[in-house]
Amino acid sequence: MTGPDILLLGNANVDLVLGEIDGWPAIGTEIMVERSEMRPGGSAGNMALALTGMGLPYLFVASTGDDPNGAWLRSQFDARSCRWIVDEGQTTVTVGIVHKGGDRVFFTTPGHLQTARTQDLLDALPKAPHERAIAAIAGGYLMPDVAAGTGRLLRELAARGWRTAIDPGWPPSGWNATTLGQMSEWLGLADFALLNAEELKGITGADDVDRAASLLAQRSRPSQTLVVKTGPEGARAYRADQHATAAAPEVRVIDTVGAGDTFNAAFLTAWVRGDGLDEALSFGVDTAARAISTFPRRYDTL
């Protein structure tokens, strides 16, 4: 076998994480927070960081702006594992406000993600090194041209021998006719759908996770795996007549930014190496639990 087992396509941006706060301050006031951290982020970026932290080979194809933030962002990743596209303009920045208990809210500037191009990703696609190799597309809804071209990306990846995974994130415009139509196309093509509970409910229109999972599992192909990340409860997965669950260990949460992305990286790693559905879920949940309970972050499992 040659080449990395996992190919990542998607968003990288600068994350500025601040916290903790207990409720929102009144307009015009100022409060102090105990800590801040400037770190590389983005859904695909967080997956790349987790794979580096676990010492696993991968290829990450992504873009940044050509400003100082872009240079800093590129320097935070393993250069041997990345293929960067440098666009003119500012690099996207996300400010994450962490609330007590670990929940968070994000504020994101448009930046380079608004100009990311599907064709640049298509031009960079290698052939899969073997039949279990997986290509994951993450954070597509923050990149309009990539979101429009994700169906094409999934088809081309399959033609090059890759198993495919999709984690779209939450669309800034909400779940409307356009985003639901895109998601329906992607679900019809991807081998793995990696969704959190809120995304699952938004896609199906159900207000209960169990009901939403059942609805989407019924629409899945027999060869497709639906993974639902349920935060502190852990994760569950559906594949044909299989249903697996993994409970999250109890940890002291520092912040949950990137928890689902870390889970994705670990779950896909376990699947590539031949683990079953139960084992892959457990590895994903345990790795994410370590990440959200350590500072600086660690990715070795508990």
Rank of each mutant, 00 (worst) to 15 (best):
N69G: 00
T301C: 15
L73I: 05
I203F: 12
E185W: 09
D22T: 13
R298Q: 15
G202S: 01
S43P: 04
V272K: 03
T178E: 15
G231D: 11
C82N: 01
R290Y: 04
L277H: 10
R160L: 03
A12S: 14
T115I: 10
L18I: 15
G41I: 03
T287Y: 00
L216K: 10
A280C: 13
T225C: 13
P144S: 10
H243K: 13
I137K: 06
R104K: 09
W162D: 03
G111R: 03
G140T: 06
W175C: 00
L216I: 14
A177P: 07
S63D: 09
A116S: 04
S81R: 04
A265Q: 09
V14S: 01
L73V: 10
V98G: 09
G140N: 11
A147E: 03
H130G: 06
A248N: 07
D286W: 14
P232M: 12
S81F: 00
R298G: 15
L154Q: 05
A244H: 12
S282T: 15
W84C: 01
A148Q: 01
R160G: 07
G174M: 03
T92Y: 04
T108W: 08
M183W: 11
V227Y: 07
D67W: 01
W162M: 00
A212S: 11
A259E: 08
I254W: 05
T256C: 08
L7G: 02
L9D: 11
R239D: 07
L157H: 12
F263N: 06
V14G: 02
F60R: 10
Q218W: 12
G258I: 03
G101I: 01
A197S: 13
R155D: 07
T94N: 05
A124R: 02
A159K: 09
P68L: 12
G45E: 00
P168T: 12
G276V: 08
G258T: 08
V257H: 08
R252Q: 15
T64E: 10
D278E: 15
K100R: 15
D78F: 02
G10I: 00
Q76T: 14
R239T: 13
R273I: 14
T225L: 03
A148T: 08
L125C: 08
F107T: 11
T91D: 02
G260D: 02
T245W: 04
L157Q: 04
